[in-house]
Design a binder for these strands. Sequence first.
DNA 1: CCTCGCGCTAACAATCATGTTAAACAAATA
DNA 2: TATTTGTTTAACATGATTGTTAGCGCGAGG
Lengths: 207, 207
Amino acid sequence: MKQEDLTTKQIIIRAAEQVFMNKGYAAAKTTEIARVAGVNHAMLHYYFRTKENLFNMVFEQKAGLFGSSLSTVFDRPLSFRNKIRLAMETHFDILVANPRLPLFIFSEIMGSEEKREMAKRIILPKATDVLQKLTKGIRKEVAKGNIYPIEPLDLILNMVSVNIFTFIAFEALSDAIKRPDHEMAKRLQLRKESNVQFILRSLKPDK
Amino acid sequence: MKQEDLTTKQIIIRAAEQVFMNKGYAAAKTTEIARVAGVNHAMLHYYFRTKENLFNMVFEQKAGLFGSSLSTVFDRPLSFRNKIRLAMETHFDILVANPRLPLFIFSEIMGSEEKREMAKRIILPKATDVLQKLTKGIRKEVAKGNIYPIEPLDLILNMVSVNIFTFIAFEALSDAIKRPDHEMAKRLQLRKESNVQFILRSLKPDK
DNA sequence: CCTCGCGCTAACAATCATGTTAAACAAATA
DNA sequence: TATTTGTTTAACATGATTGTTAGCGCGAGG
């Protein structure tokens, strides 16, 4: 089934994803990726020639995903508050499915100029796009006196901050003995709503 | 002067700090640390025996610093709002002086169970301490109807989130060509105040 | 002046990780 | 069946990295 259908190349990429996401580029060993994939390690070089090529394939995909998590649809026919809510919830849900994603991206761009440029190239366009839309939305609402006149960049940073940090903290604190999934899930849902409320409350106008 | 007074051991530790903080454990090479320190690389092994010993020395110190950044003094005779403000500002200022600190800690605990335990051992006590104090403070204020009844853990996570993420974003976006320091500093001061205001606004009671 | 111990160096050892290659194999095609 | 093509394997080559060790130099204390 399914698994069997995957080509060797795809199997390797999946294994690479797993290992790179868990250990980072430098600590990951090509031999381990091969072992996880269940193939001879020469196959990695046959298909990708170098560890770095293989990594870049994974990294670009993950950077894209990270970018998508930001670029929420702001064009829906919703009130501003509900747009914010939807954006926060969508972002949060993507992180639920990819809890190690932000830390992975950040760790990698920390030590390498090239990877930083790669990530910027992929992520920045989406970020600036959503920033523009948000800016328009804020202007309108401020004009109507509905929200506090916050800087768009500050708002977006705050939105992603609280969501992302939720998962960094959970990762960091997660014991070897993981809690049952449904309890974890419930806790995350609470935190999601808390984050939304937090952002929305901070937006209320002064008087 | 100063530099000359340092023992070889101290020189090595400083160099190790620099290299480990920039590249992370796995990507850092002992030979590079030796080169940066300007000593024969056998000295590293003479004083610390292994790369891991040397790293742990650095890591424990940095984890301690990270912990301190959280455990702000909540015993000052200040209003609750001003305690929050002071905590945020102190935390932020420590990060100004150590912008790569959070990402360094997070990256390292991401891939290694041992390091995660190490960090928890050092950081958790301080975190729980400040959490307790914060909990008391919140209870009182909520009773008086001064603030929204937020979960203490949520509040503290939000406080550190926005501060820490400021620096992660700045690190990530920082160009090879750095802006002049004073401009950077001004920008950071603005963001600091924005963060404080953001947290304080979110605490205002509903009606 | 001797020597003891400490800091230090150069050279070496051992391991490990990445990457290559030649040949085996298997499936499709003539 | 023979050939071709793409895939896979084992075995090897290379280089990098961590760690060791034998001995040198030099200052302190006898």
